[in-house]
Amino acid sequence: MDFYWGLVQIIGVHSLLGLSAYIVVLTGQVSLAQAGFYAIGAYAAGMLTVIREWHIVPALAVGALLAGAVACAVGFPALRVKGLMLVIATLAFGEGIRLFFFNFDYQVAKGAIRVGPLGGEGFRQIRYFPEHGWSTFQVMLFIWAFVALVMAALWWFDRSRYGAVLRAVGEDELAAQSVGVNLTAVKVSAMAVGGAIAGLAGGLYAHYTTHIEHASFNILLATFAIAYPIVGGLASVFGTVAAVIFVQGFLVEGLRFLGDWRNLLFGALIVLAMNLRPYGFLDSRALTGLGRLLRRKAADA
């Protein structure tokens, strides 16, 4: 059973990562730096619980805030460029963060062993959960509590004035600007919120895997982050989660029996999915259809 809870943990953390990209994509920007913010959260939260021996919740919060602050700082220069230039700028920035951690050594002695990040070897012994006797199931619940929290917050955002402004910028920058929306403020704030969510996801990731290294925060992870909202559709937060379940649950775990062929199918299925549903699985038409179906069911009953 632990295997399935582990899978649910992965889906939870990747959902958070996807949601961090979702809010940025809503403004029409594509950020490939999400893996970098995720790495900042992972290293910061890991160092706080291991070296400083903090409780996990404040450590996660600090990791998220730090990642959000970095995202905000990156937002200003990077958002001077638009559209595809931003894709490249953020991609380079994400790689920059990864390379920073590749060269980052900070170890302290703790008992007989030295702990902390060690360059290319990575950061071992992030053992907060096992040391405090949390079972896989409990960790899974802990992760999904955060997922539910973030989903609820984004759901509420979407219905607020702020969400409308985000979507307005995403649909047509010029029109949004001419009704008095401050583009820079909107984009940088979306970037900062996205960065903070990615940092939170990274902190959780560091603690359930117990070992992180720079190579896990590569461009592939960044493209995954941005793929979830695009494959899932931008009409609602549920699209992102559906895409995570499709990718992590079906493509990665479900097709494991195919062995080597799974990796071949993986790329092909993404190409196919985009050709069949260019606006994502749950686009606005699918959502209205689903809503009508649910209402009819309720009326029948």
């Binding site: 595809l84 793929a227 695009i230 790329g267």
Partner: peptide, 26 residues
């Protein structure tokens, strides 16, 4: 893919990148 929707093409090329890499590895 629809011309007005650059994200779909971007994502599809990422899928293609993974596919080409995997074909080579395979």
């Amino acid at each position: 893919l629809p011309l007005s929707h650059p994200l779909a093409s971007l994502m599809a090329t990422v899928g293609m990148l993974l596919l080409i890499d995997e074909v080579i590895v395979h």
